[in-house]
Simulated assay, not measured.
Amino acid sequence: MPELPEVETVRRTLNELVAGKRIERVTVTLPRIIQRPAEPEAFAAALAGHTIQSVERKGKFLRILLDGLVLVSHLRMEGRYGVFAQDEPVELHTHVRFRFDDGTELRYKDVRQFGTMHLFAPGDDLTNPPLNKLGIEPLDESFTLQAFKGQVAHRTTKVKPLLLNQAYIVGLGNIYVDEALFTAGIHPEREAVTLKSPEWIRLYDAIRATLGRAVEAGGSSIKSYVNGQGEMGMFQHQLLIYGRNDAPCTRCGTMIVKTVVGGRGTHTCPVCQPHPVKRGKAAKVVKGPKAAKTKAKPNAK
Rank of each mutant, 00 (worst) to 15 (best):
E39Q: 15
R32V: 11
R244M: 05
L30H: 12
T250L: 15
E6Q: 05
L69V: 04
A247H: 15
E8K: 07
G280F: 10
A214F: 05
P289N: 07
V18A: 04
E88I: 05
V193L: 13
F98I: 08
R76T: 02
A42P: 03
S224V: 13
I52N: 01
E231P: 01
L139R: 10
S220P: 02
G171M: 07
A300P: 00
R107N: 01
G115P: 08
D178L: 05
G280R: 14
T13L: 09
L163E: 03
D125M: 02
Y242H: 13
F84L: 12
P270R: 07
Q53M: 12
A296L: 14
E6T: 00
H50I: 00
R80W: 04
V28I: 01
G230I: 10
D87E: 15
T254R: 14
G103R: 11
L181V: 08
L211K: 00
E141P: 00
Q273P: 09
R25Y: 05
G218M: 06
P5M: 08
E16Y: 01
A42G: 09
D110F: 11
L211V: 01
N128D: 08
P274Q: 08
A147W: 08
K281Q: 15
V96E: 01
L145T: 03
V193C: 12
G243M: 07
F120I: 06
G59Q: 05
D246K: 15
H187K: 11
H187Y: 07
G123I: 11
G228I: 10
C272V: 08
V271M: 09
G59F: 11
V215Q: 11
Q86L: 12
D140C: 06
K297D: 06
G288N: 07
T268Y: 15
L14S: 06
L172W: 10
F235W: 13
G173M: 11
F235M: 06
W200R: 03
T183S: 09
L92V: 15
T254W: 11
L75F: 10
L131I: 00
E179M: 04
D124S: 04
L17E: 12
A283S: 10
I169A: 07
L164V: 05
F43G: 00
K301H: 05
C272Q: 08
V285Y: 03
G79Q: 02
F235C: 07
T259Y: 00
E141D: 15
